[in-house]
């Protein structure tokens, strides 16, 4: 049985761990509120852009000469997986869930004989992916200096991705991130961003009343070419916002659990400590009494 001193030491160590996890939980809760607010603030833009894209796409006849971002390269050989993770750990299964989803997709694609490359956003996915798919990481976008996600970063990522696309680096791009549902539930999500996928219902059904002749300036195709890269930036931005909220939510839950576990452990150790202490006292008494009797 452990000595009293050793037990005391363990109790103290667990107590200080509990203080840390508790503080992290509070910080995550505060950050979550902020991240959630900005994720919600970004929604109107994304929704409107989607609506405009849909109405444009239904009007512009997409020929083989149409913008490549919409029609694709005509091939399906090389896939780029853009994996958004966080820069910090201690967020429960948050990062590993995203990486697992990406990994599954990559394995499936490779089984079909396709080439897969990774573009990483954030630091935490690197270790696993570098081990499983060495030499397939084309770039890692460093987000460690970013405190709050802003559109400029999403734009920079989008530009780089489109650059690679135009120079023939890949044919199809998928985006991986965790969609925020609640502090308890974050769903790893996969989304194809290049070529752009139009929901068939949105592009085929005429929008009510707005089907009147719309004037375009400079022209439909110019607007569409201008819009497509922007749309990709917005999708990435949205993924980053959702990810930020999910990360904090996941960390909050994980730290809450850790705090509770530490509490349980302290209780258990305290009971053990008290028992040991009483046992020591009893032994001492027995020794004294038997000593006195022997005289």
């Amino acid at each position: 049985m452990a000595s009293l001193k050793a037990l005391k030491g363990r109790i103290n160590s667990v107590k200080s761990t509990q203080k840390i996890t508790k503080a992290m939980k509070m910080v995550a809760a505060a950050k979550l509120r902020r991240a959630q607010a900005s994720a919600e603030a970004g929604r109107p833009y994304a929704e409107r852009l989607q609506a405009v894209m849909a109405s444009l796409a239904s009007k512009v006849s997409v020929g083989p000469e149409g913008p490549k971002l919409l029609t694709g390269t005509g091939k399906d050989d090389t896939h780029l997986l853009i994996v958004c993770t966080s820069d910090r750990g201690l967020a429960g299964a948050f990062n590993s869930n995203i990486v697992r989803a990406a990994r599954k997709k990559a394995d499936a694609l490779q089984a079909q004989g396709k080439t897969v490359y990774f573009y990483l956003v954030g630091r935490k996915g690197r270790a696993v992916i570098a081990r499983l798919f060495p030499k397939q990481i084309v770039h890692q976008y460093d987000t460690s200096a970013i405190k709050y996600v802003n559109f400029g970063d999403a734009q920079a990522i989008a530009e780089e991705v489109i650059e690679r696309y135009n120079s023939g680096g890949f044919d199809v791009a998928h985006l991986f991130y965790a969609r925020f549902q609640s502090a308890l539930v974050q769903e790893p999500t996969e989304q194809q961003i290049i070529p752009v996928q139009m929901s068939p219902s949105a592009s085929s059904s005429p929008t009510s009343g707005a089907d009147a002749v719309v004037e375009y300036e400079p022209g439909e195709e110019e607007i569409l070419t201008d819009l497509l890269p922007r749309n990709i930036a917005v999708q990435i931005f949205r993924a980053m916002l959702e990810n930020a909220a999910s990360e904090q939510g996941s960390r909050m839950t994980a730290m809450d659990n850790a705090t509770r576990n530490a509490g349980d452990m302290i209780n258990r150790l305290s009971i053990q400590y008290n028992r040991t202490r009483q046992a020591a006292i009893t032994t001492e008494l027995v020794e004294i009494i038997s000593g006195a009797e022997a005289l």
């Binding site: 707005a210 009147a212 002749v213 719309v214 004037e215 375009y216 300036e217 607007i223 201008d226």
Partner: peptide
């Protein structure tokens, strides 16, 4: 300039 009742229009 856009006033109320403008015809449908889109521009960059």
């Amino acid at each position: 300039g856009v006033l109320a009742g403008h015809a449908p229009f889109m521009s960059t």
